[in-house]
Design a protein around this nucleic acid. Sequence first.
RNA 1: GGUCCUGUGGCCGAGUGGCUAGGCAGAGGUCUGCAAAACCUCGUACAGCGGUUCGAAUCCGCUCGGGACCUCCA
Length: 498
Amino acid sequence: MDSFSQDIYIKNTLSGDKELFKPISEGRVGMYVCGPTVYGEPHLGHARSAITFDVIYRYFSFLGLKVRYVRNITDVGHLEDELADQGEDKIIKKARLEQLEPMEVAQRYTNLYRDTMAKLNVLPPSIEPTASGHITEQIEVIQEILSNGMAYESNGSVYLDVNAYADKYHYGELSGRVLDELMAGSRDLEGQQEKKNPADFALWKRAEASHIMQWSSPWGKGFPGWHIECTAMSKKYLGLPFDIHGGGMDLKFPHHEAEIAQSYAAFGCTPVNYWLHNNMMTLKGQKMAKSKGNFITLGQMFSGEHELLLQAYDPMTVRFLMLQAHYGSVIDFSNEALKSAEIACNKLQKGLELIGGLESKSDKIVDNELSQQILTACENCYVKMNDDFNTAQVLASLFELMSLANKFENKESNVTEEALSQLKRTFKGFFCDVLGIQPQESSENDYLPEVMEIISEIRNDARSKKDFQMADFIRDRLAVIGIKIKDSIDKTTFEFNG
RNA sequence: GGUCCUGUGGCCGAGUGGCUAGGCAGAGGUCUGCAAAACCUCGUACAGCGGUUCGAAUCCGCUCGGGACCUCCA
């Protein structure tokens, strides 16, 4: 570990300010991030969130902090139209369309999500709990809220009583919502008979017999409300309060607002000290969302099979593109931006190789200025990362380090031992370990067939010119390394390890 | 309508009031049999108008444009 400052400032979306990050327990971080609802293929938006918090997770670990990172899998489908109380469960709908068991659907997309994230070099979280695996815990939280008088049962469902809650706590503190306006806004919706108040939200929903995913509860057969799983599972694995809660900006309201309310209502305590929200991916200025149908799946990104894609993009290109912007800004999709990210990422890959191979020129004079520039750029990686995880600026520092490394390589002078070792440590550490860019595998073998094609062409050309010395030279040298040439009338083939 | 974010050079995209991020594209150069690669140099941009200030892309106000949330959503 390097001796640079470890004071990290985080933009807390609860206060709207950058705040010094103080973990509850020194040297440890508890982080909870909202994961996917597994009823469809992962798309660019999922990648944005996963990569944002992956980098944060990686950076804390890199600094030597012990992180417990919990990211849930929502495998209870919930209702597509919850307010109107008549929607279809998303997972059940998908199961019907694909003629599968609901849990088969959930499993399939969970697997796909994990595989895809692995391609993006997103580390698996420490714990990846499923909503369906924590029904008991969710019921317990609901019972707490009921016994505290801030929820009520109605026709087999349980709702959080927002008015009762607001008497004691501040509802809307995260999203800036004003309760009166919320109620005014929802007044004309139908299907609200069960609720005392339109702004009340479900903690538990009664299931009709036809609803396949259902569990027993003190209130009869049903399934948990959308927000309660995060409250139950974050408390179970991280305790209360914990350090960081992350997720997409679009979850601020109602999801995260509801989590805060549930936590206070059940345990009289804020769930978390720092709220972090990543911004959206947009397509032609519009948010990418499954519901809008304007999303590009990650599978399509990697294969290029989408009408808007000019080519296939490597997962690392996608990752790099996202790191070039701060997590709090919107990223608009474009082929130009991706292409430019691809080229830039490849350059840094070469920089990694170059820097890895640098050696001290001990017979040359030490260039103190260059040494200092290297140390400053190294420190900047930490400084920028500490400033609300500004990966865009870290990349700028890495480009600067690469440029300085090239200067060193081309100059007839040395740098201090400290500068050289710091350069190597920092560049690799930030590029690979923190930003999580996978070093390019040398894909030399991929070229073998084409290389053999070329060699074959040269040899056949020699044979046709009766330059048998050259032709035999090629055949004999290949034979020595285990490649046997087989000439037939119309073509030449090769046998390896012959 | 309410709440909030945002508008930066050809493009993408950072930016804590003063010390011109960075990348892509483009131009010139070094190197080179040619080409490529690599490296070096070059662009003084901050929607508009007004204000605060010695000084503003950065703070304040207004105008215009874009977006998010207020229903499921990463």
